[in-house]
Design a protein around this nucleic acid. Structure first.
Lengths: 340, 340
DNA sequence: CGCATGCTTGCATGGCTATTCACACAAGAC
DNA sequence: GTCTTGTGTGAATAGCCATGCAAGCATGCG
């Protein structure tokens, strides 16, 4: 009986309310809030005044419904402990907002499958989908493309030959530079420590590295593939360092794992980093330059990479060009591979 | 002339299309997709079949428009380099998705002001707003509350006596434990290194720390307040360590700054961490337990904290109780404060 | 003064779905 | 066989805003 739910939420004023107060039509209100619309200055002011008084704010959901464009960009972050992605996410979100878009963030729960959530993403009619280090099943990818939603992979190339763009660092090139650098420094028993073999990023880095060693006539690298977690990296490092032919240098698929390896080498095996064991990573994430790590690595320049992502998100034409953009970084020589 | 924009986007099928194909009304389609709605099993199947054939997916924007509930939760992350927030954000986003909500992420561009963006947030009719380590001006906060949008501060108490809830770690208690721990370890010239004084989080930690020292009859701590960036932390550490009465222990407002301080102490001043200088932080972020840091800290348990955030987001009643939830963590004694 | 032009404005409609209401129909009670 | 329930269904409406269209108005030109 009159168990009135205490104003669950006072429904916000609509354009009609404003129109009534301002003594104009609802259409005028709409135009007042549309930059460049055909409306007299005086009218716009009247409307704005009424709007302020009522606390009116156009409902973007309704606008999206009409325009068929939501201005929402889905961002899927692969479930990773890798701190590299925090600045990336921040930068992306900032830039999207500045461009009048907004980021709807999802996390891929179990490693690979952003699958389950995609359904939700699509229901919100996002204008584009940015996948950060996450994968996608064949069907799902197809579903998006059929839906006309551009797919942009960040830091990961799409596995199949499907219509989607990608922005990645210079994996092969960078890994090659790391390989040559290690040889120059005099390391000879070199290992590669990577992620899962079904990760294109991992494979490109390994391949670039392998090829560089080969070209220099060096022994092929030992391999140890773990997961991309902290524990995975540590386990992989232990496996390598326990080998009878213990490597004297390790190139890790990313900085995060490199730091894990460094910690194991230094604190579990008592090795002096650089002199007794060289360690290199990939990404140049902020942690890499802490003096305690001083990690040699190949940078993935976040700013320029996001630049390219934004182009792909905003440029309609790009939807038809499924570019594989590669952004070059630079070798960061640091103490972790300094021998003498 | 017929410069047809090559199917800008094939407008997705609507409930009407499905209804026509299935030979039912649009209402039936709606019901088929509404769990618990009054619809015959056979009808639902017919609808689902047609829906699958057309690739139909209910438009959440339209649904939101009707229901007056968007299922969108605004998440504002303060512009911070602090890696602590990546796992927090991931966990929050995952949990929201699991609860059928979705996170609209914004970044507060210039330190304090999430202000500018709030306007956008409100236009999307978010159901709630979670502020992570970000502040909000008085007017904006009021605007939200007038709009009926619950505000939830995470890791930061609202500065004014306004209707908003907060979930924070046990700042005072934790800082007190750190203080007592440092004294127990025999440190005597103790410093506090914190963030800006207008940050309630900073102030609570400093206050808890100060009081603990006082109760133990110890000298009041030296203070050095920097910004919450890496460079700020390093600068503050240099200032402290250059003092004639150099402290023998430093408690930093968070792990991120503690690590910055540790790096300066170790690599610029050549001090042995623990023996010559004790360092403690707050948060227990993943990096803190790398053996190279082995940082004593007070944990902010992400899981339980997010639990409480979710309660506040989901529980309608909570909107009327503006709770200040404090989640206790535990002192993590590690090597960075081990003297002998 | 007549008319063309350009700027403003309101009306009406559309976009997509959830929900109320009334109604049809089947099953069960008597 | 009638009456009552109950279940399923469709028509109609609402929710909020943008936009095509036509009409109003003023201005400028001839």
């Amino acid at each position: 009986m009159d168990r009135s739910l205490k104003r669950i939420r006072p429904s916000p004023p609509s354009a009609h309310d404003v129109a009534r107060l301002a003594g104009v039509s609802q259409a005028a209100v709409s135009r007042a809030f549309t930059p460049g619309a055909s409306i007299a200055k005086a009218t716009r002011e009247k409307v704005m005044e009424a709007a302020t008084e009522l606390g009116y704010r156009p409902n973007l959901l309704a606008r999206s419904l009409i325009k068929g464009v939501s201005d929402l960009i889905g961002v899927v972050i692969g479930n990773t402990q890798n701190p590299f992605f925090l600045p990336v996410l921040e930068e992306l979100s900032t830039r999207l907002t500045r461009a009048g878009k907004h980021s709807l963030v999802f996390t891929a729960e179990h490693g690979h499958d952003a699958d389950f959530q995609i359904e939700d993403v699509l229901r919100y009619r996002v204008d584009a989908l940015v996948l950060m280090s996450a994968s996608l099943s064949f069907e799902l990818a197809e579903k998006c493309s059929r839906e006309g939603i551009p797919l942009i992979f960040f830091n990961r190339r799409p596995r199949w030959d499907l219509p989607m763009a990608s922005v990645t660092g210079a994996n092969e090139k960078g890994a090659g530079e790391i390989g040559r650098h290690l040889l120059e420094q005099g390391y000879r028993r070199i290992a590669y420590m990577g992620g899962p073999t079904d990760s294109p990023t991992n494979n490109e880095r390994e391949e670039g590295f392998r090829r560089a060693l080969e070209q220099q006539g060096a022994e092929p690298a030992m391999r140890e593939l773990g997961y991309l977690t902290r524990e995975g990296g540590m386990a992989a490092a232990r496996a390598l360092l326990n080998r009878p032919d213990r490597p004297d240098a390790i190139f890790c698929a990313n900085d995060f794992m490199a730091i894990a390896a460094m910690e194991v080498a230094r604190h579990e095996f008592g090795l002096e980093i650089g002199r007794e064991i060289g360690i290199a990573g990939f990404d140049d994430m902020p942690d890499a330059s802490w003096p305690s790590f001083d990690l040699t690595t190949y940078s993935q320049p976040i700013g320029p990479m996001i630049d390219r992502v934004m182009e792909l998100v905003l440029d309609l034409d790009a939807r038809e060009r499924f570019e594989q953009v590669i952004v070059e970084g630079a070798l960061q020589k640091r103490g972790s591979t300094r021998r003498g």
